[in-house]
Design a binder for these strands. Structure first.
Lengths: 219, 219
DNA sequence: AGTAAATAACCAACCAGTCAGTTATTTACT
DNA sequence: AGTAAATAACTGACTGGTTGGTTATTTACT
C-alpha cells in the first residue's frame, strides 16, 4: 500500500504574504470595523495563521496603518502631480479630480477606509492622526490650491478658502458612507454616477462666476 | 462614642435610573463608540453598578437602541410641521431648516448619534435599519418636498430630485463627522458657523435661477 | 416584616500578542 | 547528482487581561 505523495501542508511564499494579508485585512475591517475584527479572522482570510501574521506586522494598529498607506497614500500623491501639470481651466481640473476620486475610491473597495477611520477615530488616536496628516491635509492643500487659482484667474467667485473646500468634497464623503452604512436599507439605491452629476452641476453653478458658467455647459 | 448617622450608601430611585442611564450611555458611546464602551463604564457614569443596569435594560444592544430612540424622538416630527406651515420662499425655508439643523444637532451632543449609527451600521443591522426608516426617510421626503416646490414655483433651477437632496445635506454630515473624528488633529479648527455660511452661499448660487439669486443677497 | 432596589463577586467567552516546536526550502559539501 | 546541515517560514497552543452577562447577598424603604 503506497501513500500518495502528500501535498505540503503549506508553502513558503514570503514575497506574497504581506500583500495578501493587506487585502484580507481591508476586506475584514471593511465588513466588521476595526475593533470587531479579530486577527484570527484576518489570518484565516489570508490563508495563514495568526502567528504568521505577526511575522509581517508588529501589531494590529500597524497592520491597519499599513492597509491605509497601501490603499490611499499612493493614490493621493498621484493626484497632486496631475494637478501641478494641468494646463486647462481650474474648473475642468476640479471636475476631473472629483470624477476620478469618485471612480477610484468611492466606487472601489478602498472606500471602506475613510469610513473605518471616521468610525474608529475616537478609540485610536494615532490612526486618526496618521490619517489626518497623510490623507486629509494633502487633500485640503490640493483642493485649496485649485480653488485659489480659480479665484485668482477670475474663473470662480470670491470664496471663503478656509471653509469652501470641505463643502466641495462633502458629497463624496456622503456617497462613501451611504454605500457602507445605508445601502441595504435604501429602497432607491444610490446611483453614484448621477449623484456625481448632481454634485458637479451644483458646483458649476455655485462656484463659477455667472459669465464663465454660461460658457461651460457640460465641460 | 456615638456614630454619626451614616448617609445611606445608595438610594432607591427606580423612576430616575433609566433616564440617567440613557444619558450616561449616550456620553460614553459618543466618546468611545459602541464596541469599546464597557457596561461597567456606563454604570459608573450613571452612578450605579452593572447589575443595576441590567435591571432596566436586557442587554447592551437594546440599551444602544434605546439611546438612539430616546435622543431622536423629540426632534423628529418637529421640522416637518414647521415646513408644512411655511409661507415664504422655498429658499428661505430651505436655508432656515439647514441653519436650525446645524444649531440643534451639529452643534449639540446629539451629533454623536448619526456618527455612532454610521460607525456601527455594519455590526448592528437592525439599528441601521431603524435609523434609516425613522430618520433618513423623513429627512429625504422633507427636503425633496421643498426642492420640488421651489422648482415648480420657478425659484430653483431644474434639478435631479432623486439625487440633489443628498448633495444638499452632505456638508452637514461632514461637519458632524469632522467634529467627532478630526477635531483634535486639525490645526485650523472647523468654524461651524462659517462652514454653514459657505454652504448656504454655494447653495444659493447653485440652486437658484440666476435672476432669482440676484434678488436675494443674504436672505 | 416584607420586598423592591441595588450591590459585588462571579463565570464564560473572546482576543491580542507570544513562543516553543514543526516543516518547507535553500545552501554547502562530497 | 545526492544529501546532510542550516535557515526561514509557518503553526498552534497558551497566556493575561477584558467584558457581557448572571446571581447570591445586602440594603433601603414601606
Amino acid at each position: 500500500m503506497t501513500t500518495t505523495p502528500a501535498a505540503p501542508r503549506w508553502q513558503r511564499r514570503a514575497e506574497a504574504r504581506p500583500e495578501e494579508v493587506l487585502q484580507a485585512a481591508l476586506a475584514a475591517f471593511a465588513e466588521r470595523g476595526y475593533a470587531a475584527t479579530s486577527l484570527d479572522e484576518v489570518a484565516r482570510r489570508a490563508g495563514i495563521t495568526k502567528g504568521t501574521l505577526y511575522l509581517y506586522f508588529p501589531n494590529k494598529a500597524e497592520l491597519f496603518k499599513a492597509v491605509v498607506r497601501n490603499a490611499l497614500v499612493s493614490n493621493l500623491s498621484d493626484a497632486r502631480q496631475r494637478a501641478a501639470s494641468h494646463s486647462g481651466s481650474s474648473w475642468s481640473l476640479l471636475a476631473g479630480l472629483l470624477r476620478e476620486f469618485t471612480h477610484r475610491i468611492v466606487l472601489s473597495p478602498l472606500s471602506a477606509i475613510p469610513k473605518l477611520v471616521i468610525a474608529e477615530a475616537g478609540n485610536f488616536p494615532d490612526i486618526a492622526g496618521f490619517y489626518f496628516n497623510e490623507v486629509v491635509m494633502p487633500a485640503r492643500q490640493l483642493l485649496q490650491g485649485i480653488l485659489q487659482r480659480g479665484i485668482a484667474q477670475g474663473e470662480f467667485r470670491p470664496l471663503d478658502l478656509d471653509h469652501i473646500w470641505r463643502v466641495v468634497i462633502a458629497p463624496l464623503l456622503l456617497a462613501i458612507l451611504w454605500q457602507h452604512s445605508f445601502k441595504p436599507y435604501d429602497p432607491v439605491p444610490l446611483d453614484v454616477e448621477r449623484h456625481l452629476a448632481s454634485h458637479l452641476d451644483l458646483l458649476r453653478h455655485g462656484l463659477l462666476l455667472p459669465q464663465v458658467s454660461a460658457l461651460q455647459e457640460a465641460p
